[in-house]
Each structure stands twice: as structure tokens, then as C-alpha cells.
Design a protein around this nucleic acid. Structure first.
Lengths: 125, 125
DNA sequence: CCTTGTGTGGTAAACCTCTACCACACTCGT
DNA sequence: ACGAGTGTGGTAGAGGTTTACCACACAAGG
């Protein structure tokens, strides 16, 4: 979960909640709630970027950081939402993952869907 | 897309926008915008249920109807969001589908993830 | 004890999203 | 040309979500 991640990252840096918020420009009270999952993660991408940078995340790490935030907000990550590819692949995923027919071939089909969509449209990511 | 689906379903029934809204209990002006994708699909599950029933959708059809609505809202479908299983599978999907390492083995890994999670926790869906 | 530092509760306000209402434009039959 | 019927634009307001502020509780050190 995003809230746990972000809390342990802060602790790793041996920062108090207040100090941390000061440095990143956040409200301590609100952030306390965010870390405990009482309030949702920030939706503002700018804020998330600041956080990722502050924690020195980049590449794959940063992506899954962003994903975790979106996921806890029950949203689809913005870059995924914009991608026509995933608009098509996601329903397939939902179908497969709901387990109605979670057979080997179903999964192969899903995999094929994704791959096909990728090769078809170069506008990925 | 949800908006296109819902529009063609209405047309299939040979209903004018106003008549349709009357029968389902929706505002015509707003619904006009929904059908064209100007406004987002309704988020209220009750409304979506009414729509699905009105169109005679059930089972698999209804599920993907609901998914389409959520997707266009850039949200994760409620039942998926609630499932601990899928909460874990989704990041794997995002990783794979972004295509950073969209290799055969990556996809196999994703498939395994999903299957493992399914068999591990019977609280699916 | 006081003081200082830390996290948290409660709440009001800013903010945004979605809906409902009203008026308008366009078409088509009469 | 008029009327009814159909879809759409604009906009205000309801409703919900997210943030910011203030005050409090608790702990440790002096």
C-alpha cells in the first residue's frame, strides 16, 4: 500500500513527520492521515513527483510508486488511462482475473491481447 | 467506449433520448452529453444497474458494461478495487502492459501471479 | 513541574465533479 | 409558416472530496 510505503521511506530517512512535510511542502496533519490510510494519497501528480524525487525514486521504482498511489485512490494511473492500448487490454485483464474462466488458455489469450495491441499501435506508454 | 455502447443500445430499442430518459429516470440534457462523451458515465452503481436491467444485460455482458463505465471514468471497477487479490495483480499487469519488458516470460510471470493469487485466497470476486 | 517536540482529531473552507434546469436550434410533417 | 418533437449549450447549484488550520494529547528531557 502507498501509505505504508511512504511512511517507511520517511522513517528510513529518519525524518519526523513535521520536518518531512516542511521539506516537501505538505500539511503535517493531513499527511499524518495519509500515512495511516485515513485520507487518500494525493491525486496531484506534481505532489507525487516531488515525493518521488525527494525519495530518490526513478524508473521502474517511480512508476510503481505512482501506481500504488493511483491504486489506493481506486483510480487508473494517468498514463495508463491515456493509452488506447490499455483501454483495450484492461477489460481483458478484468475478465481473466475475475476467474470466471481462469484457465491456462484464458491467460495465454490475455497475454496475446496485450502483445498484439502493443505491436499494433506504436503509441504505447 | 461506454458512451457509444449505451447510445447504440438505445437506438436499437428505437427510443428517443427523451423517452429513454423518462423510462430510466435520467435528465435528457445530461444524458445527451454522456452519450457523446462530454460528460462522464454515471458513477452511481444504482443508476448503472437500472441501465443494465433496462437493456436486459446480465452475467458476463453486465460485467463488461459496468467495467466500461468505470474505465471511462478512469476508475477501477468497484468489485476489482475491493478484491485483495486483484489489488496485487494489477501492478503486475501495469508493469507488463507498459511494455518495458514485455517478453514472453514477463507475461508468463503475470499469468502466474494472477493464478497464484487466485488459488492462494478463496475470497476472490 | 515546565518546555519542547511529535503525532493526531475535529472541522471549516477550498475545490472539483456531476447533475438538473432552462432556453435555444434544427428538422419534419401539416 | 407553424407546431411538435428531438437533441444540445450554458450555467447554477448540490454534493462530495481533499486540503489546511487550530487545538489537543502524549512523551521525554531539563
Amino acid at each position: 500500500m502507498f501509505n505504508e510505503t511512504v511512511k517507511s521511506l520517511r522513517i528510513q530517512k529518519r525524518l519526523t513527520l513535521r520536518d518531512f512535510c516542511e521539506q516537501v511542502g505538505l500539511d503535517p496533519s493531513n499527511w499524518s492521515k495519509v500515512e495511516r490510510g485515513v485520507n487518500p494519497p494525493p491525486g496531484d501528480v506534481g505532489v507525487l513527483d516531488r515525493l518521488a524525487e525527494f525519495f530518490g525514486l526513478s524508473g521502474e521504482e517511480k512508476l510503481s510508486f505512482m501506481d500504488a498511489a493511483a491504486l489506493q485512490r481506486k483510480e487508473i494511473p494517468p498514463d495508463v488511462a491515456d493509452s488506447a492500448i490499455l483501454q483495450k487490454a484492461l477489460p481483458a485483464f478484468f475478465r481473466a482475473a475475475r476467474g470466471h474462466e481462469l484457465t491456462e488458455s484464458e491467460l495465454k489469450g490475455l497475454a496475446d491481447d496485450i502483445r498484439k495491441l502493443h505491436t499494433a499501435d506504436p503509441t504505447s506508454r
